[in-house]
């Protein structure tokens, strides 16, 4: 743990909190993905991981790396922006594919349970 050991106390607490929060949210999203009963409910679950789950882990990473290398590392921002922009595209396409498939199978998506 090269960068982590030298963190000042305040920063260490912030990093630990952000990591726990982010991974818990991602885990909850995955739990929802398995437990929710209808497809259209499940489509909401991964957004937990991609919105605040990813954001807080990336923020923790930014804090650690800017401290360790003594320069602000904006690499994580690129991943964050990328996730922010691409997740909706993927989810929308999956949602539309689901709608399309259930319609062409002759069932109304509203009847899903």
């Amino acid at each position: 743990m090269t960068g982590l050991e030298t963190l000042p106390p305040g920063l260490a607490v912030a990093v630990a909190g952000l990591l726990v929060l982010g991974s818990t949210l991602t885990l909850l999203g995955a739990v929802g993905l398995v437990r929710l009963r209808s497809f259209y409910d499940r489509i909401h679950a991964p957004t937990l991981g991609t919105s605040w789950g990813a954001a807080s882990i990336l923020l923790a990473s930014i804090l650690v790396w800017s401290w360790a290398e003594d320069r602000t590392v904006a690499h994580e921002l690129v991943i964050g922006v990328f996730l922010m922009v691409t997740t909706p595209v993927t989810l929308m396409l999956i949602g539309r594919a689901a709608l399309h498939r259930s319609r062409s199978a002759g069932e109304a998506p509203e009847d899903e349970t």
């Binding site: 982590l4 993905l33 497809f39 789950g53 991943i79």
Partner: peptide
Amino acid sequence: VLGLDALYVAVMLLFIVTGLRLGTP
């Protein structure tokens, strides 16, 4: 496909946390 999307995100975040722990960029 939805599961695959979630899998990709989880593994990507895992890589970042592991990178933090090992201290490699």
